[in-house]
Every structure is written in C-alpha cells, then in structure tokens.
Design a binder for these strands. Structure first.
Length: 469
RNA sequence: GGUGGGGUGGCAGAGCGGUUGAAUGCGCCAGACUUGAAAUCUGGUUGUGGCAACAGUCACACGGGGGUUCGAAUCCCCCCCCCACCGCCA
C-alpha cells in the first residue's frame, strides 16, 4: 500500500467526462439544488490546460538544452580551476553564456507555474463541490416531500393503514413513555453528562440495543457473507473529503482540533461506519478478482445535528451519538452490477425488518433529497405509532448508489485488462441504527399492561427473555 | 513523552548530485518447450495529466510541500506517516 499521500485533485470527479458533457452536470447540479458554478470551472480548466501545454513545451526545450550543455558545463568548470589569467576569464565568460540559455527558459516556466498555482485553489474548490448527477430514472423533486413510495410491508398482525388502537385494542404509548416507566433510558442524566440530545440506555434498554445490533451484524456476516471489520471513528480530514462527506457536510461533524494543541493533525468524528469502511482501501489499486468487497461494521456514530435545532428534540429519534451496523460494497465499474447490488443490499434490510416483524415502506428519494455523492438513494422507513398524529413512518435506513464518485475521491481503483486502471463503484446501506430502531420495536411490541414483548429473533440475544417489564 | 532508524513501481528491495522512470527478485501478461500442467527459457509489465486520439507524443511524479543547482530519488527546510527501544498507561 502506498504511504499516505493526498488524493489527486483530478480524481474528485471525472473531469474529462464533465468537459464532454457539461449540460449533464449542470442539470444534475440544478436538480440537486447545488449552486456550483460549472461554467466558471470549465473556463478555469481551459485556462489551466492552455498554460500547462505551453509550460510543458518549454520544459521539453529546457531538457534538451540541459542534456547538451550539462556535460560541457562540467568540463568548463573543471578547466577553470586549472587555468589562470586571461585564459580563465575567457572560460568563465563561456560558462556564463552556457548557463544563461536554460536560465531564460526557467523564468518563463516559472511564470506559467505561478499562473497555474493561482488557478488551482479555485479549480479544486469547485471540483469538490460538483455533485454526482442523479440518474435519469430518479424522480425530480425539491425535497423529502417529493419522494415516491415504492412499496410497503407489514406483518399479518398489524395494518398500518389503521390506527394502532384499531389494531391492538388499546392506545399506543410513545417510546418516551415506555422507556421512562420501564427504566430503559435516562434522558435527564444523559443531558447532565453530555448536554442536549444525549441519553443513557439502562438495563433492558441497553440490552435490547445490543441484541438488535448483534442480530443485524450476525445476519450480515453469517447469512450474507460480509466481512466483519472494526474501523476508526476518529479520522483525518482527507478521509472525510474522500468519502464525500466534506466539504458540504463539514458542519455536521465534530471537529477535534489537535493542531491547536500543538501536535499532530486535526481529526473528525465519523457520523457513520461508512467512512471507516470506505477508507480501508483509500489510495489502493485492487485486484479485480477480489470483487465484490463486502464489508460490515458496527460503530459509534457522531452527529452535531447542526441546523436541526428544535426538530425531534424529545426521545431517541435525533441524538448526537448512536450505534450503527453499516454495510458497504465495492465492486467493478459496471452500472448493471451496481444496480444489482443496490437491490440486494436493500433486500438484506427487508429480510431483517421482516424477521423483526416491523412494518416498513421503501421510498425512492427524489433528486432534491439526494446528497452530493448519490446517483440514487432509497430510504427505508419503519412505522412508528407515536410519530405525528396516529403514527407515521420514520426513516431508519438509507441505501445509496454512488457509481465511482466516492472511489474516485478516495482513489480506489483496480486493473482491468483492456482499460488499464479503472475507478471502482461503491454502495452503502444501513443495516440497523440504534437507538432509533428501538422506537418502532418498543412501540409496536408494547402490550396493554405497559410491558413490551421481546421480538422472537432477539430473544437469543436477551438470555431467552420474552418480555420487558 | 524521550532517543534512534526509515518512507522508492502490484509486493519485496537497490540506488544516495548528471545518460535512473528507476537495478535485482517475486507477482502478473504473452510466446517457446510440453498431450496438458508444473518447471525452464524469451519478451513484456508504474501511475497521472496535456495534445492527438488508430498508432502515438510530450510533461510531471521515488510520502507531501517548498528550496539550493545548468541538472535532485539523491543536498537543505517544513509537514505527514511508519518502525525499534525506553518511560507512562485502558
């Protein structure tokens, strides 16, 4: 593996493709409500290439002169040491003349070099902001309100089109009430320790979380053949940029300013295990025969929730720290294969939710709801009886299809016989995020007497326990 | 935290001011031999970018950035990373 080097700026997006298809990228940016100035980027890029071509020609001249003059300079310098008087002065003049030739070129080269240095920061900043255009089959829309439902599923014993009470014969309590009476979580002490949006999970609350995570993790490893990995959650900025979370998502991540303490480098806390998993092969050239790489991790996730002030302030829905089982697939650059994996990764989650017997629906996210790095995204939402009035679906999973956008930034490639080195494709999807997933579990499995039945598949992870409370 | 040693092509590992984009070995690809395979032999095999895009051609890159020099993988400065030993420690 190469030692850590900064990503190559040209690897941020496929610049060649952008030059050939500017309208495609402009339309893509517009549909994602990005205001990146692609025309400006193209202008600067053209200037840069022109300057580069001129500079390279000068360099080539310089190299020719060097090869001719170099040995002569060496000889003259030797002769000067031995000579004296008029002879010495003459030789010195010759030497100066020889040296002057490449020196003239050098100053011209330097001018181009300075021009390039002046252009590059703006070009790079623009390049980093160009989003991956959404796929043509992604519905155009402004935000989450324009997302399109794909399908629903519910266990035979629950019909989400009817109220909870009609299904179960009593009024649903919210998970906030349930965790309070059953002593599964402690918000006051969480806030005392960590501030707003912090919490403790206690007793069977903690145990239930461990059970879901372990069930989800084991399913991915044992049933679907994913490779289990434990990854850093404290990473360098390059990793955040490479995975596509920065620069746009910078405000969302906790920043550890180690450089201000005089040592090392700054670090950021990751908001998802995806960062660690995708970072594994940063700056590597992989063997095509190793594909697909299927990684799964469980990690603590940190999110500042900047811009979400006042939203979902109560309960376990939106918090700063949580646990998540995440799946990631890296594969060869093939659209059909990418699409196929996307479907598979979603089906793994459906299998899991069906095993847990939680009603859910699949949402095709519209263009306005996609992040910069997604060509396509499908959200999975679980039914949460206490949300809104009479229950609502709430997001619990998100499955992204990224083409080569992320691998390009991370510089992850493979050798392909006829096409040389090729940038890989990557995909990711949540497997289970807790405690958010505890909301539908607790609320759906609550009983009229205030107890909560433990879902069958989780009982082996709860010491056989069937009921909480 | 202290002291010392290092970062070179897919991997291992030479080179330590000029013709070295880089020896050698491994791996990989093609060919020869073979009924086939192995072994052996021969040749090929870094990446990125610009221009042309059939072939090609030019430039840049020896952790990253800057400097010295006519010329740097080789010398100097800053940064990042790794390793060894000591100290501390979940």
């Amino acid at each position: 593996m190469p030692a850590f080097g900064f990503y190559h700026p040209a690897l941020m997006i496929d610049l060649k493709h952008l030059r050939d298809n500017p309208e495609h990228y402009k339309l893509g940016a517009a549909r994602k409500a990005s205001n990146v100035d692609i025309d400006r980027l193209l202008t600067l890029d053209a200037q840069k290439r022109q300057s580069m071509t001129e500079m390279e020609n000068l360099r080539a001249q310089q190299r020719v002169i060097e090869k001719e003059a170099g040995p002569q300079i060496g000889k003259l310098a030797g002769a000067i040491k031995k000579a004296d008087g008029a002879e010495k002065a003459k030789l010195e003049a010759e030497l100066e003349a020889l040296k002057a030739k490449p020196a003239a070129l050098k100053s011209q080269i330097q001018q181009h070099d300075e021009r390039l240095a002046a252009l590059e920061p703006e070009i790079n900043a623009l390049l980093l902001q160009v989003p991956l255009p959404p796929d043509a089959d992604v519905p155009v829309g402004k935000g989450s309100e324009d997302n399109v439902e794909i399908r629903r599923w519910a266990p035979s014993w629950f019909d989400p089109s009817k109220a909870f009470e009609a299904n179960k014969g009593f009024k649903a309590k919210s998970h906030i009430d349930l965790v309070s009476t059953l002593k599964l979580a402690d918000f006051e002490r969480g806030v005392k320790l960590g501030g707003t949006r912090h919490y403790l999970l206690t007793g069977d609350g903690m145990r239930l979380q461990q059970a879901v995570l372990r069930f989800a993790f084991d399913t991915m490893i044992e049933k679907h053949g994913f490779t289990p990995v434990y990854v850093p959650v404290i990473v360098r900025e390059e990793t955040m940029i490479g995975t596509g979370f920065f620069p746009q998502g910078r405000e969302q991540a906790y920043h550890i300013e180690e450089s201000k303490r005089g040592g090392g480098h700054d670090a950021f806390l990751t908001g998802t295990g995806e960062v660690g998993l995708m970072g594994i092969h940063m700056n590597e050239i992989l063997d095509e025969s190793s594909f697909p790489l299927k990684y799964c991790t469980v990690s603590t996730c940190f999110r500042r929730e900047a811009g979400a002030a006042g939203k979902d302030t109560a309960g376990l829905y939106r918090i700063h720290q949580f646990e998540k089982v995440e799946q990631v697939v890296i594969t060869r650059a093939d659209e059909a294969e990418s699409r196929d994996w996307h479907k598979k990764m979603i089906s793994y989650v459906e299998g899991l939710l069906q095993a847990l017997e939680l009603p859910y629906r699949l949402l095709q996210c519209c263009t306005g709801d996609l992040g910069p790095k997604n060509a396509d995204m499908v959200d999975i939402e679980c039914w949460m009886p206490s949300r809104g009035t009479g229950g609502e679906y709430g997001e619990t999973h998100s499955a992204s299809r990224l083409y080569d956008y992320q691998c390009r930034r991370l510089n992850i490639r493979y050798r392909s016989g006829d096409k040389g080195t090729v940038v890989c494709h990557s995909l990711n999807n949540t497997v289970a995020a807790s405690p958010r997933i505890l909301i539908p579990i607790l609320e759906m499995y609550q009983n009229i007497d205030g107890t909560v039945t433990v879902p069958k598949v989780l009982r082996p992870y709860m010491g056989g326990k069937e009921k909480i409370g």
